[in-house]
């Protein structure tokens, strides 16, 4: 197991290198001139533009730019944005916001998705089961952007239950965006739990558990739920990495100063260093949580062995 984890961690290095290069190339390929846009309404003088282009290596071909970037990276320098602010500081400021948002979302996935899925799975074809079926279908079929605006409009503006934007209300500010960010996965968790539970309830070993005269609660919790939750737990784990992508939309709509909003703004202003820094970090998280899931899987299911 230890060797397996070490090998997987080593493998992340080439993946991260490749990912960062791809992101770098994509930013490079974006149309428009980031420096010219920097001035906004007051155009910068050609001399300033030339100097800035020089400072940020923008006149060099792609591979030179990437090489320079990587050279600095290995000295612990993530570079600066065009205004001279170090990217590392942006990340340090924005990451906690995103972490809080992601935790809120995962809590929603577990609290609502898992519980709804368990109840629906135990009472298949009941009224509640049908409610879950319809609502989850609805949720997964609506794009997160639409859902975000809709939630903001309804719960924020019309009903006034939640703040519309920003983080001024502490953790409370995270509830609505967290719910929006979680919505798709939440629906999926509910469906996955339901299916998995329904399947396991028919398993031979559940019949054995009943034949052993175990109390119903033990049969359900120990011999059905525990087995049913293996795919759900692994999904939620892997989903944490994927949530970061959804955070770009959610944070932008709800104006949360997290890495999602930063990367969105950075893409718009073609801040190569910021985009590459943050997206590579997201890729790292994604890979990391997938590794955690694989390890978790082996812990939860003794039949899985990796060596």
């Amino acid at each position: 197991m230890g060797r397996y984890v070490a090998r997987r961690l080593l493998l992340t290095i080439p993946v991260l290198l490749g990912a960062s290069f791809l992101i770098f190339a994509m930013v490079y390929a974006l149309p428009g001139d980031p420096i010219r846009a920097l001035g906004g309404d007051r155009p910068l003088s050609p001399a300033v533009i030339a100097e800035l282009r020089e400072r940020f290596n923008l006149n060099d071909p792609l591979y030179i730019q990437y090489w320079e970037y990587m050279k600095n990276l290995f000295q612990g320098d993530l570079g600066t944005d065009f205004r001279g602010r170090p990217v590392i500081e942006t990340i340090e400021r924005a990451l906690p916001v995103t972490v809080k948002l992601a935790i809120t979302a995962v809590v929603f996935e577990i609290l609502i998705g898992l519980v709804a899925g368990v109840l629906a799975g135990i009472r298949r074809n009941s009224f509640f089961d049908n409610v879950v079926l319809v609502s989850t279908t609805l949720i997964v079929s609506i794009p997160i952007l639409v859902l975000a605006f809709f939630a903001q409009l309804l719960f924020g503006l019309k009903l006034g239950w939640f703040p519309i934007a920003g983080t001024n209300d502490g953790l409370y500010s995270y509830l609505l965006p967290g719910l929006v960010l979680a919505s798709g996965s939440l629906a999926y968790v509910a469906r996955l739990t339901r299916t998995s539970l329904a399947e396991n309830l028919r398993a031979d070993y559940v019949r054995t558990a009943r034949a052993k005269g175990l109390p119903t609660r033990t049969v359900i919790v120990r011999h059905t739920l525990r087995n049913s939750l293996i795919p759900v737990v692994t999904f939620i784990g892997a989903d944490i990495g994927a949530l970061l992508g959804g955070a770009i939309v959610t944070e932008t709509v709800f104006n949360l100063p997290g890495i999602g909003r930063e990367v969105f703004n950075a893409i718009r202003s073609q801040e190569g260093a910021v985009v590459v820094g943050i997206v590579t970090l997201m890729v790292f998280f994604f890979i990391f949580f997938n590794l955690v899931v694989d390890v978790l899987y082996a812990v939860l299911d003794p039949r899985i062995r990796y060596d």
Binding site: A203, D204, D301
Partner: peptide, 23 residues
């Protein structure tokens, strides 16, 4: 009824692999 299962009547099944909980 449950209390009879085990001390009173018990049962074994054809496929022991699927009839035992893998975890």
């Amino acid at each position: 009824q449950r209390k009879i299962r085990g001390p009173g009547i018990s049962m074994i099944f054809q496929d022991a692999l699927s009839s035992l909980n893998p975890v």
